[in-house]
Simulated scan of single mutants.
Amino acid sequence: MEIDENGVLRLKGRIKAAKDVSFTLNRPAVLSGDSSIAKLIMKHYHERFNHGNHNTVMNEIRQKYYITSLRSKLRKIAHECQWCRINRSLPKMPSAEGDLPPERLRHHQPPFTCTGVDYFGPMSVTIGRRHEKRYGALFTCLTTRAVHIELAESLSSDSMILALRRFIARRGTPSDVFGQRHEFRRRKQRTDEHTRGTREDEERSRRPHHNLEVYLPALRTWVAPGSVWCDLSKPRWPLH
């Protein structure tokens, strides 16, 4: 940078040898973006070029001036411009939402008739001198959004069945139970690694003796992670 004979601070570039280039383009005046004169210049160019895009206005301003933080200042001027706010505003259209599934509209029926189950955790517990992991089985009523929590010792199927039995003993037998497909697959794989030699009669004796249907639906809008019971399983407080 340099100061000319009029006391104006100018930006010294490397195009002095270029022909047919104006003095202001070769040595643009340096202005602070927060100064009043810079705001008037930016507003003038913004209106002169018919409230155009920022790149066009920036290119024309830099032919004569070098203004600090030019892009952000132009955005602020365009945001405060009444003409731009009126002509560029868009009507707010309500987002289209799909209908709720029938499992979430079971009125005049007991709570937990249709239930979603998910795990949260792990939580660290102290037993004697050792630390072990425990998980929470979150049962959610799809109609009333009521919540029931059971403690699960692990991610195995046996632990899930025991938690389901305790839930049924307290809340009654639900007609439908929904869970995440990938979560149940993961637990099934972990369980199969440890129970390959278990006989079928032993596995049958561990199942809850209730007539209920367990669904592992594909990832749709209302059963995808982040909706219905999955939102309730997100921790809102420290688990340790």
Score class of each variant (00 low, 15 high):
Phe178Val: 03
His194Thr: 06
Pro217Ile: 11
Glu183Cys: 10
Pro208His: 06
Glu213Thr: 15
Arg171His: 11
Thr198Asn: 03
Phe184Ile: 14
Pro217Ala: 10
Phe178His: 09
Arg199Trp: 05
Arg207Ser: 02
Ser205Ile: 02
Gln180Asn: 15
Arg199Glu: 09
Gly179Ile: 10
Arg171Lys: 14
Arg196Tyr: 09
Gln189Leu: 13
Arg199Asp: 14
Thr195Phe: 06
Tyr215Asn: 01
Ser175Ile: 07
Glu203Met: 06
Gly197Arg: 04
Glu200Asn: 08
Arg181Met: 10
Ser175Glu: 09
Val214Ser: 03
Glu200Pro: 01
Ser205Asn: 09
Ala169Leu: 12
Arg186Asn: 15
Arg171Tyr: 08
His210Gln: 05
Glu213Lys: 09
Arg181Ser: 12
Ser175Pro: 00
Asn211Val: 02
His210Tyr: 12
Ala169Cys: 13
Phe184Gln: 10
Arg185Asp: 09
Arg190Met: 12
Arg187Tyr: 08
Arg196Ile: 04
Asp176Met: 12
Gln180Glu: 15
Phe184Tyr: 10
Thr198Val: 15
Gln180Asp: 15
Asp176Tyr: 05
Phe178Gln: 03
Gln189Val: 14
Val214Ile: 14
Glu183Phe: 14
Asp176His: 15
Arg170Ser: 14
Arg170Gly: 04
Ser175Asp: 09
Arg186Asp: 07
Val214Lys: 01
Asp176Arg: 14
Gly172Ser: 02
Glu200Phe: 05
Thr195Asp: 11
Arg190Phe: 10
Arg186Pro: 01
Glu213Arg: 13
Arg204Glu: 01
Phe178Ser: 01
Asp201Val: 09
Phe178Pro: 03
His210Lys: 03
Arg207Ile: 06
Gln180Cys: 15
Phe184Asp: 05
Gly197Ile: 01
Phe178Lys: 02
Glu213Ile: 13
Thr173Gln: 07
Arg204His: 00
Thr195Pro: 00
Glu203Gln: 13
Glu200Asp: 10
Gln189Asn: 12
Pro174Trp: 12
